[in-house]
Design a protein around this nucleic acid. Structure first.
Length: 444
RNA sequence: GUGGGUGUAGCUCAGUUGGUUAGAGCGUGAGAUUGUGGUUCUCGAGGUCGCGGGUUCAAUUCCCGUCACCCACCCCA
């Protein structure tokens, strides 16, 4: 057999214990949050028929779909997001009671140019919550409350949720005297405001033939800043009489009211009239979570309402709304900020051994400790104690249990807490209590 | 897909104005009187100098190509 270089496809990554342990904890927290809002879990296959995915994301997005070289190369593709597979699933299961509230934590694939420093990968995990079958803006507000709680729970504290509305955007186009047929190309430029700056946006809009007066009108609106009330109030003043804008404004106001009632602090919410979001399927409120702690880092999550997507799979239109947390990117951000509490192992106790340790007796002690609920690891070799302690140190195992001939003889057990250097020799029962105490203190 | 940059040990990098045995720090392995870690000290392992071709007596060093990676744009999670 010839050997091959061990390597990884660009944009994919291995996740080692030090990162996966905290990730799993975070997923457990997210799951609890999702379920607290009434969402139930679902999983869908990694691959879908190509035509299920086409025509939903827009030209830009569609280019990034990984098509599989299966059959004629035009049959299967890896899923690009979790929203379209959910829509397909709901269309196939009309018996599901509506509103259908589901969460889904699975990887998606995008043939993007990966840039790990910006949290961009070709394979990453999304955590979606979606509510299918209601037009209530409370569902949108719940999306915001859920991501707010989820991102906060991850330990990330510098973030804001940017909010806009597709109808408001169309109203802005009308107000500027621009045809709705051009909204995609124009709004794409508008969306770049905070990245390329005002002057660049103005000149790019000029380049694609937008009249100067229209640019002025758009840009003046986009630049509104301040609290949601201020921005909405000013937008309302300027957009009076534009029907679509009016609907959008009313919906954003209602949604924000519900969101505050759900306990999301005002300071986290920004109405940003330059936010458009690239995916084609959004029809109502749209939102995007951005970190304020890292320059030029992609969004931590995003979502919005997509009332027309379900009808693309036949049948009647079903209103739906959802939001996604980019788990892989969120973790990458936490690592970059040094906020991830890394841990090499989930083990609580390491049972050390010597050449004179009666192995099977010590294994019974290990089993007993496991049945008490502790995570217990056995040290296989009768190495020098120094080496056994070094091993525990490196893996972040908090307590070393020493069980040698002298302990066996006396019928007790010795244990040392590495963090505090405390060492005690106690009876088995007393030891259980002592260990529990030390582990509890550590968790603080 | 477009523009710029970088490829030397597991990681971060030095170096050779072209010359025979290519270095450091970190990490890693062993040890400093055989039941005690995080500090220190000693010794060791580990490199076809990205790959292919060219110039040359001689290339890791110069030239060309190629691949990979990084950064920015685009877009997003």
């Amino acid at each position: 057999m010839s050997s091959v270089e061990a390597r990884l496809f660009h944009g994919t990554r291995d996740v080692l214990p030090s990162e996966l342990l905290p990730q799993k904890e975070l997923v457990a927290t997210l799951t609890r949050t999702f379920e607290a809002f009434g969402f139930a879990p679902v999983e869908t296959p990694a691959m879908e028929y190509v035509d299920i995915l086409l025509g939903k994301y827009g030209a830009e997005g569609e280019k990034l779909i990984y098509k599989l070289a299966y059959d004629d190369g035009n049959t299967l593709a890896l899923r690009y997001d979790l929203t379209v597979p959910l829509s397909r699933l709901v269309a196939m299961h009309p018996e599901l009671p509506k509103p259908f509230k589901r969460y889904q934590i699975q990887p998606v694939w995008r043939a993007d140019r990966a840039q790990p420093a910006q949290g961009r990968f070709r394979e990453f995990i999304q955590c979606d919550v979606d509510t299918v079958g209601t037009s209530s803006l409370v569902a949108d507000a719940e999306n915001l409350a859920v991501v707010h709680a989820g991102i906060l729970a991850s330990g990330m504290d510098g973030f804001v949720i940017k909010i806009n509305h597709r109808k408001l955007l169309r109203g802005m186009m009308a107000y500027a005297g621009l045809p709705s047929t051009r909204d995609k190309e124009i709004l794409r430029v508008v969306d770049k405001l905070d990245k390329i700056g005002l002057d660049e946006v103005i000149s790019e809009l000029g380049l694609i033939g937008v009249p100067v007066e229209a640019i002025t009108k758009l840009v003046d609106l986009m630049q509104l800043t301040g609290s949601p009330e201020v921005v909405l109030g000013e937008a309302r003043r300027r957009l009076t009489g534009v029907a679509e804008a009016d609907t959008g404004l009313l919906e954003v106001e209602a949604m924000l009211g519900h969101t505050r009632a759900l306990g999301v602090p005002e300071t986290r919410l920004r109405v940003d009239l330059s936010l458009t979001r690239g995916l084609d399927y959004y029809t109502g409120p749209v939102y995007e979570i951005v970190t304020t702690e890292i320059e030029r880092f992609g969004s931590l999550g995003g979502g919005g309402r997509y009332d027309d997507l379900l009808s693309l799979f036949g049948g009647e239109p079903v209103p739906a709304t959802g939001v996604s947390i980019g788990l892989t990117r969120l973790l990458a951000a936490l690592v970059k900020l040094g906020k991830l509490r890394a841990r090499e192992s989930a083990t609580d106790l390491l049972i050390s051994r010597f050449s004179d340790t009666p192995v099977d007796l010590a294994l019974k002690v290990a089993s007993n400790l496991r049945s008490q609920g502790f995570a217990v690891e056995w040290y296989y070799e009768a190495d020098r104690l120094k080496k056994q302690f070094q091993y525990a140190e490196r893996k972040g195992i908090p307590i070393v249990v020493i069980l040698g001939a002298s302990e066996v003889e006396r019928g007790d057990v010795t244990a040392k807490c590495l963090a505090t250097s405390e060492q005690v020799t106690l009876s088995y029962d007393a030891m259980t209590l002592w260990i529990r105490e030390k582990l509890a203190a550590r968790a603080m």
